[in-house]
Write a protein that binds this DNA or RNA. Structure first.
Length: 275
DNA sequence: AAGAGACCCTGTTGGC
DNA sequence: TGCCAACAGGGTCTCT
């Protein structure tokens, strides 16, 4: 589940390896993975361009080219990006294959939910709408108690649902929302407007902590996520509730419970997290 | 504007 | 062993 820390890990690993590299060829092996423009224009638009830098906004990975075009990937549920030695053949779930000067870059996506976009210089045509309406990333200085509390005040949805709202908490997904709520001692079902200012302060702190630590641990490898060399991240060893239902809480030994909030599986400790 | 729910996708898992 | 439904889940869309 690539969320902010996973995409940031990919960005950090990609940047030194592909910056300055020319795109020799592009192959789209699954046309519906290319959201904009057409797969054909996508490939022709990339050919012979050169990677200038690799950036990220929330869960979007953005490869900026020397021409000014932006190659944008959203990994959704199961997308990964791997870099292989030049000449390596596409893999079982490779949907887009880019041949660079010294590497092959594969966008692997078993479930075909992820998307790629090629955006012209200084244009917004074709950009994913979500990218144009992102809130603040919790790791940014602007993500303050005041900011989050102001949003909480006007929302009566469960606090967990508000944490997953990309217009408010950019880059947060299911793993880190559950983990941050646990460390802040807040039950995910609590209505956002009932979260006190003091608790919101704690939540801001735990969100920042959890996301930063996950970046240092190269992300959480549960399910499909791997780093660009195919190896696992290691934050899964530091999870307290995510994917731990039925297991004893690491703090109080109470059994971790699972439930659904807004169609999302949610885990919490009934004792550590006050309702 | 907010909230609820459907839908997209397909590999994996679990039940019978 | 084989079949099939349920499940995973971020983002977008529709409807209220």
């Amino acid at each position: 589940m690539p969320e902010l820390p996973e995409v940031e890990t990919i960005r950090r690993e990609l940047a030194p390896r592909i910056s300055g590299q020319r795109i020799r060829t592009c192959r789209v092996l699954r046309p519906d993975i290319v959201s904009y423009p057409t797969p054909d224009k996508f490939c022709r638009g990339l050919k012979n361009d050169i990677v200038r830098e690799v950036t990220r906004k929330a869960k979007y990975l953005i490869i900026v080219l020397v021409s000014g075009k932006q190659l944008i990937f959203h990994l959704r549920l199961s997308g990964t990006i791997v870099v292989r030695p030049r000449g390596t053949k596409p893999e079982r779930f490779t949907r887009i294959a880019l041949s660079l000067d010294n590497h092959e870059l594969f966008f692997n996506e078993p479930r075909v939910l992820g998307r790629a976009y090629l955006i012209e210089n200084n244009r917004t045509a074709g950009m994913p709408k979500g990218l144009l309406s992102l809130g603040i990333e919790p790791i940014a200085p602007g993500f303050t108690t005041q900011y989050l509390h102001d949003h909480f005040k006007k929302r009566k949805a469960p606090v967990k649902a508000v944490l997953l709202d990309q217009h408010i908490c950019a880059g947060v997904g299911n793993i880190y929302s559950d983990e941050a709520l646990f460390h802040a001692g807040i039950r995910p079902t609590r209505r956002a407007f009932r979260v006190t200012r003091r608790e919101t302060g704690r939540l801001v702190r735990t969100l920042k902590n959890v996301l930063k630590k996950a970046v240092r641990k190269f992300g959480t490898s549960v399910g499909d996520y791997v780093r660009t060399d195919g190896t696992n991240g290691s934050f899964q060893d530091l999870l307290y509730v995510y994917q731990r239902e039925g297991l004893p809480c690491r703090i109080c030994r109470t059994e971790i419970k699972a439930m659904k909030i807004g169609n999302r599986s949610t885990r919490y400790c009934p004792k550590c997290q006050k309702s």
